[in-house]
Amino acid sequence: MEALYKKANILYIPALALFALFVAYPFVDGIRIAFTNWNGFSRRFSYVGLRNFVRLFKDENVRASFWNTLLYGFGSTFFQQVLGLSLALFLDKKFPGRGITRTVVYLPVLISAVIMGYMWYYLLQYDGALNDIVALAGGEKRLWLSSAASAKSFILGVNTLQYCGISMVIYMAGLQNIAPMYYEAARIEGAGEWQVFRRVTVPLLYPAFVTSITINLIGGLKLFDIIKALTGGGPGYTTNSLATLIHSSYFASQMAGFAAANGLALFVLILAITLSLQAIFRKIEVQS
């Protein structure tokens, strides 16, 4: 059988060819650019050795963006799991309005993140919807995107709300796939609500956790559109992720070489995180 399957390998050649042309080749070319002082558009440039990589470790903005990337990645993944799982548990039982709630929570997933960012902006403006409420309550209007902490919370929050539907839907299906007999068996053994959740629900939801966390984490670490639409990386440089920093150093600051080095760093970061995540998942799987 194995020999036969080997013959089927031909079936992935078209896909690989496409990857070679549109991903691998530009990727390698990008590595070359990382060793230059190219400004991104001129025909003139020279090779500058490791200078761009040295700068990665020295530049304050890279450091800030690095931590922000982790914050956006792990932060939204965490909140999406909490929200997604709570919503799934909440919607697991039938009640009037259940279908609509599910529809509404999942809806933002399908909206372009740039447009979602613009829509939220109407709320967060100084004369925006959120401040109308503040004013109505007698408070002083606030600049929601003006401090680093507040702006980052909104980026995290908007991203979490927009995509928590993915986790919800995955967990809902996971819950439905758990046969009632497991619950019954646990109850017969005298387990309480919490124990049923820990001993039955969580382990049986394991595949759902893996998928949901992986999808959310990769998305969060690459976060770009929402930041661009809400804060553009500002005020100053405070809310940049590595992805938006790459963009602005490429195009605005005209440091294409530095941006390419930055791109490699982001790639390595995401790769390292997802690989270790997979290793952890595998370990858990083996243990249980």
Partner: peptide, 20 residues
């Protein structure tokens, strides 16, 4: 030099917001 327009804009918003 070309490319510093962004530095003007970003340091400006940073100063205004007091993040810089």
């Amino acid at each position: 030099p070309s490319g510093m327009w962004d530095s003007l804009c970003k340091t400006g918003t940073g100063l205004l917001a007091n993040t810089m």
